[in-house]
Amino acid sequence: MSESARAAALRDPELRVPFAEALDLVRAAVAAVRDPELRVLSIEELGILRDVRLGPGGRAVVTITPTYLGCPALDVIRADIASAAREAGAAEVEIVTSLSPPWTTDWLTDTAKAKLSAAGIAPPGSPPGVRVLPLVGVPVVGVPVVELPVVGLPVRCPRCGSSDTAEIARAGSTACKALRACRACREPFEHLKDH
Protein backbone atom coordinates (compact mmCIF):
# COMPACT_ATOMS: atom_id res chain seq x y z
CA MET A 1 0.00 0.00 0.00
CA SER A 2 1.33 3.47 -0.85
CA GLU A 3 2.01 6.02 1.87
CA SER A 4 -1.02 8.12 0.90
CA ALA A 5 -3.25 5.08 0.68
CA ARG A 6 -2.13 4.04 4.15
CA ALA A 7 -2.77 7.53 5.48
CA ALA A 8 -6.25 7.49 3.95
CA ALA A 9 -6.86 4.06 5.47
CA LEU A 10 -5.82 5.41 8.86
CA ARG A 11 -8.53 8.06 8.68
CA ASP A 12 -11.17 5.52 7.79
CA PRO A 13 -12.67 4.17 11.02
CA GLU A 14 -14.08 1.17 9.17
CA LEU A 15 -10.64 -0.09 8.20
CA ARG A 16 -9.17 -0.02 11.74
CA VAL A 17 -5.49 0.40 11.02
CA PRO A 18 -3.50 -1.20 13.86
CA PHE A 19 -2.35 1.37 16.41
CA ALA A 20 1.35 0.54 16.09
CA GLU A 21 1.22 1.06 12.36
CA ALA A 22 -0.67 4.34 12.71
CA LEU A 23 1.90 5.62 15.18
CA ASP A 24 4.78 4.55 12.92
CA LEU A 25 3.19 6.40 10.05
CA VAL A 26 2.77 9.65 11.97
CA ARG A 27 6.19 9.39 13.58
CA ALA A 28 7.93 8.79 10.24
CA ALA A 29 6.13 11.73 8.64
CA VAL A 30 6.97 14.11 11.49
CA ALA A 31 10.58 12.91 11.70
CA ALA A 32 11.04 13.67 8.00
CA VAL A 33 10.09 17.37 8.37
CA ARG A 34 13.01 19.53 7.17
CA ASP A 35 14.48 22.28 9.26
CA PRO A 36 13.62 25.50 7.39
CA GLU A 37 17.03 27.09 7.98
CA LEU A 38 19.18 23.97 7.56
CA ARG A 39 17.31 22.30 4.72
CA VAL A 40 19.74 19.37 4.49
CA LEU A 41 18.67 18.13 7.92
CA SER A 42 15.40 16.76 9.20
CA ILE A 43 14.18 17.92 12.58
CA GLU A 44 15.03 14.48 13.90
CA GLU A 45 18.64 14.70 12.69
CA LEU A 46 18.95 18.18 14.16
CA GLY A 47 17.77 16.85 17.52
CA ILE A 48 14.73 19.14 17.80
CA LEU A 49 12.22 16.27 17.74
CA ARG A 50 11.97 14.67 21.18
CA ASP A 51 8.83 12.56 21.12
CA VAL A 52 5.79 11.57 19.05
CA ARG A 53 2.73 10.01 20.67
CA LEU A 54 -0.66 9.06 19.37
CA GLY A 55 -3.67 9.27 21.66
CA PRO A 56 -7.32 8.29 21.40
CA GLY A 57 -9.14 9.51 18.30
CA GLY A 58 -5.93 9.84 16.30
CA ARG A 59 -4.68 12.81 18.34
CA ALA A 60 -0.92 13.23 17.87
CA VAL A 61 1.21 14.91 20.54
CA VAL A 62 4.61 15.99 19.25
CA THR A 63 7.28 17.28 21.63
CA ILE A 64 10.03 19.52 20.31
CA THR A 65 12.94 21.38 21.90
CA PRO A 66 13.91 24.67 20.27
CA THR A 67 17.52 25.26 19.30
CA TYR A 68 17.42 28.85 20.54
CA LEU A 69 14.68 30.37 22.71
CA GLY A 70 14.05 33.02 20.05
CA CYS A 71 14.53 30.82 17.00
CA PRO A 72 12.42 32.52 14.30
CA ALA A 73 12.02 29.24 12.40
CA LEU A 74 9.99 27.69 15.22
CA ASP A 75 6.60 28.82 13.90
CA VAL A 76 7.36 27.35 10.48
CA ILE A 77 8.57 24.12 12.10
CA ARG A 78 5.35 23.87 14.13
CA ALA A 79 3.20 24.42 11.04
CA ASP A 80 5.20 21.87 9.03
CA ILE A 81 4.90 19.27 11.80
CA ALA A 82 1.16 19.81 12.06
CA SER A 83 0.57 19.39 8.35
CA ALA A 84 2.92 16.38 8.10
CA ALA A 85 1.15 14.64 10.98
CA ARG A 86 -2.28 15.34 9.48
CA GLU A 87 -1.23 14.07 6.07
CA ALA A 88 -0.05 10.89 7.76
CA GLY A 89 -3.48 10.39 9.25
CA ALA A 90 -3.51 12.19 12.59
CA ALA A 91 -6.91 13.71 13.27
CA GLU A 92 -5.60 16.37 15.64
CA VAL A 93 -2.08 17.60 16.39
CA GLU A 94 -0.77 19.15 19.58
CA ILE A 95 2.80 20.44 19.61
CA VAL A 96 4.46 20.70 22.99
CA THR A 97 7.61 22.79 23.44
CA SER A 98 9.97 21.38 26.04
CA LEU A 99 12.96 23.40 27.23
CA SER A 100 14.44 20.83 29.52
CA PRO A 101 16.88 19.28 28.87
CA PRO A 102 18.05 22.19 26.72
CA TRP A 103 18.98 21.50 23.11
CA THR A 104 22.66 21.31 22.37
CA THR A 105 24.65 20.81 19.19
CA ASP A 106 26.00 17.64 20.86
CA TRP A 107 22.69 16.04 19.85
CA LEU A 108 23.63 16.21 16.18
CA THR A 109 24.49 12.74 14.94
CA ASP A 110 27.65 12.07 12.94
CA THR A 111 25.44 11.51 9.90
CA ALA A 112 23.88 14.93 10.42
CA LYS A 113 27.32 16.53 10.72
CA ALA A 114 28.44 14.82 7.52
CA LYS A 115 25.35 16.11 5.70
CA LEU A 116 26.05 19.65 6.87
CA SER A 117 29.65 19.40 5.75
CA ALA A 118 28.59 18.09 2.34
CA ALA A 119 26.28 21.11 2.02
CA GLY A 120 29.17 23.48 2.68
CA ILE A 121 28.23 24.24 6.28
CA ALA A 122 30.93 23.48 8.84
CA PRO A 123 29.34 21.44 11.65
CA PRO A 124 29.80 22.32 15.30
CA GLY A 125 32.92 20.56 16.41
CA SER A 126 33.41 20.08 20.12
CA PRO A 127 35.05 16.70 20.69
CA PRO A 128 33.37 14.55 23.33
CA GLY A 129 34.20 15.57 26.86
CA VAL A 130 35.44 19.05 25.99
CA ARG A 131 33.29 21.82 27.36
CA VAL A 132 33.29 24.68 24.91
CA LEU A 133 30.90 27.09 26.56
CA PRO A 134 31.38 29.02 28.77
CA LEU A 135 34.39 29.32 31.02
CA VAL A 136 33.45 32.41 33.00
CA GLY A 137 34.69 32.40 36.56
CA VAL A 138 36.63 29.15 36.40
CA PRO A 139 39.64 29.58 38.68
CA VAL A 140 42.95 28.35 37.27
CA VAL A 141 45.03 26.64 39.93
CA GLY A 142 47.59 29.04 41.30
CA VAL A 143 46.60 31.82 38.93
CA PRO A 144 43.93 34.21 40.24
CA VAL A 145 42.78 35.15 36.77
CA VAL A 146 39.20 35.05 35.56
CA GLU A 147 38.76 33.20 32.30
CA LEU A 148 36.57 34.86 29.70
CA PRO A 149 33.95 32.79 27.92
CA VAL A 150 35.60 30.76 25.20
CA VAL A 151 33.36 30.27 22.21
CA GLY A 152 34.20 27.49 19.79
CA LEU A 153 37.24 25.50 18.79
CA PRO A 154 39.22 25.70 15.52
CA VAL A 155 36.73 25.22 12.70
CA ARG A 156 37.62 23.18 9.62
CA CYS A 157 36.79 24.34 6.12
CA PRO A 158 34.02 22.05 4.80
CA ARG A 159 35.54 22.22 1.29
CA CYS A 160 39.26 21.61 1.69
CA GLY A 161 39.42 20.47 5.31
CA SER A 162 41.97 23.08 6.39
CA SER A 163 41.68 24.30 9.97
CA ASP A 164 43.27 27.61 8.98
CA THR A 165 39.96 29.50 8.94
CA ALA A 166 38.85 32.86 10.28
CA GLU A 167 35.54 34.24 11.45
CA ILE A 168 34.19 37.06 9.29
CA ALA A 169 30.94 37.66 11.13
CA ARG A 170 29.61 36.05 14.28
CA ALA A 171 26.04 36.33 13.08
CA GLY A 172 25.57 34.92 9.60
CA SER A 173 22.47 34.35 7.50
CA THR A 174 20.66 32.95 10.54
CA ALA A 175 21.12 33.27 14.30
CA CYS A 176 22.60 29.79 14.60
CA LYS A 177 25.30 30.23 11.93
CA ALA A 178 28.48 32.30 11.75
CA LEU A 179 30.20 33.36 8.53
CA ARG A 180 33.81 32.24 8.11
CA ALA A 181 36.45 32.16 5.39
CA CYS A 182 39.15 29.56 4.69
CA ARG A 183 42.67 30.96 4.41
CA ALA A 184 43.89 27.89 2.51
CA CYS A 185 41.31 27.63 -0.31
CA ARG A 186 39.98 31.19 0.06
CA GLU A 187 36.34 30.09 0.08
CA PRO A 188 33.84 31.64 2.46
CA PHE A 189 31.58 29.20 4.30
CA GLU A 190 28.99 29.02 7.06
CA HIS A 191 29.53 27.44 10.44
CA LEU A 192 26.80 26.06 12.68
CA LYS A 193 27.91 27.47 16.03
CA ASP A 194 28.53 25.29 19.07
CA HIS A 195 25.65 25.60 21.47
Partner: peptide, 20 residues
Protein backbone atom coordinates in the same frame (compact mmCIF):
# COMPACT_ATOMS: atom_id res chain seq x y z
CA UNK B 1 13.15 28.57 35.35
CA UNK B 2 16.09 26.14 35.34
CA UNK B 3 15.29 24.93 31.82
CA UNK B 4 14.95 28.45 30.42
CA UNK B 5 18.09 29.53 32.29
CA UNK B 6 20.19 26.62 30.98
CA UNK B 7 19.31 27.56 27.41
CA UNK B 8 19.76 31.29 27.98
CA UNK B 9 23.13 30.81 29.72
CA UNK B 10 24.58 29.48 26.47
CA UNK B 11 23.03 32.25 24.39
CA UNK B 12 24.29 34.99 26.68
CA UNK B 13 27.83 33.52 26.60
CA UNK B 14 27.85 34.60 22.95
CA UNK B 15 26.57 38.05 23.91
CA UNK B 16 29.35 38.44 26.46
CA UNK B 17 31.88 37.34 23.89
CA UNK B 18 30.54 39.85 21.37
CA UNK B 19 30.60 42.75 23.84
CA UNK B 20 34.09 41.81 25.04
Amino acid sequence: IAGIAAKAAKETAYHVDHAV
